[in-house]
Simulated scan of single mutants.
Amino acid sequence: MPEPKSAFDATYPCDFYEPAELFEPDQMYTIPEIGRLLQGLEPDAEVDPDTEAVLVDWAVPWVMVHAEEMVVAEPLSEDGPGYYGLATDEEPDAETATDESA
């Protein structure tokens, strides 16, 4: 149910990090790691499963909104997670990568 703003002691701006503020340029991160970073935690911080589920819920739309500033990599293993990182000038664009592999 919606709550009136008066029910809260304070409200805060809804500011989110930009990818360049969040990621190390030479690192790739999983969605759970991105969720931790968005909360100011280390990527490998221990969190309980319920908290991790909430962090993932925050991270997925954030990644979608910032997709143009990011790159994605295939999982390192068949059943592993995908990885996301900051797009830099060193990465070929998807069209170039497809052309070279043909």
Rank of each mutant, 00 (worst) to 15 (best):
A10G: 10
L76E: 12
P4D: 12
P81I: 04
Y12L: 09
V63N: 03
Y12G: 02
D9H: 13
G80C: 06
D79M: 13
L76M: 12
G35T: 02
E95T: 08
D44K: 06
Y84R: 06
H66K: 05
E18W: 06
P43H: 05
F8A: 09
A10P: 04
F8N: 06
E33D: 06
L55D: 01
A53M: 13
S6V: 07
P2G: 14
Y83I: 03
Q39Y: 04
Y17K: 01
L38M: 05
K5E: 13
L38Y: 00
F23Q: 01
P2T: 14
P13Q: 09
P4T: 10
F23C: 01
E78Y: 13
L86V: 08
T98L: 15
F16G: 05
V60P: 02
P49F: 07
E18V: 04
A97P: 08
M28T: 06
V54I: 14
M70Q: 06
I34H: 00
A102S: 14
L22W: 00
T11P: 00
A94R: 15
E74V: 13
E95R: 08
I34W: 00
A87L: 14
L76H: 10
P32G: 09
E74A: 15
V63S: 04
E90P: 06
Y84S: 04
E52C: 08
C14T: 12
D48P: 02
V54H: 10
S77T: 09
E91I: 08
V71N: 05
S101K: 15
T30Y: 03
D93H: 05
D44F: 08
A7F: 07
E100W: 14
E21T: 01
L55S: 02
R36Q: 02
M70I: 05
T88F: 10
L22S: 00
M70G: 04
P92C: 09
A67C: 08
L38F: 00
L76F: 13
E78K: 11
H66E: 02
V60N: 07
M28K: 05
K5I: 12
D93T: 05
A45C: 07
S101E: 15
E52F: 05
G40F: 00
V60C: 06
G40E: 00
A7I: 05
P25Y: 07
V47N: 03
F8S: 08
Y83Q: 08
T11S: 10
Y29D: 02
E33A: 13
D26I: 01
D15T: 09
G82S: 09
D48A: 10
P32S: 11
V47T: 06
L86A: 03
A7M: 12
A10E: 12
A87H: 10
E90Y: 14
E3C: 09
V54E: 14
F8V: 06
D79I: 12
V56H: 03
T88Q: 10
D50S: 15
Q39S: 09
A7G: 07
V60T: 14
D79P: 03
P43C: 04
P25A: 10
E18L: 11
P2D: 12
A102M: 13
F23E: 01
D93A: 06
D50N: 15
E78I: 13
S77M: 07
L37D: 00
Y83R: 07
P2F: 13
G80I: 03
P49V: 12
M28N: 04
A45Q: 04
T88N: 10
M64I: 11
S101R: 15
Y17A: 01
D57C: 09
A45H: 03
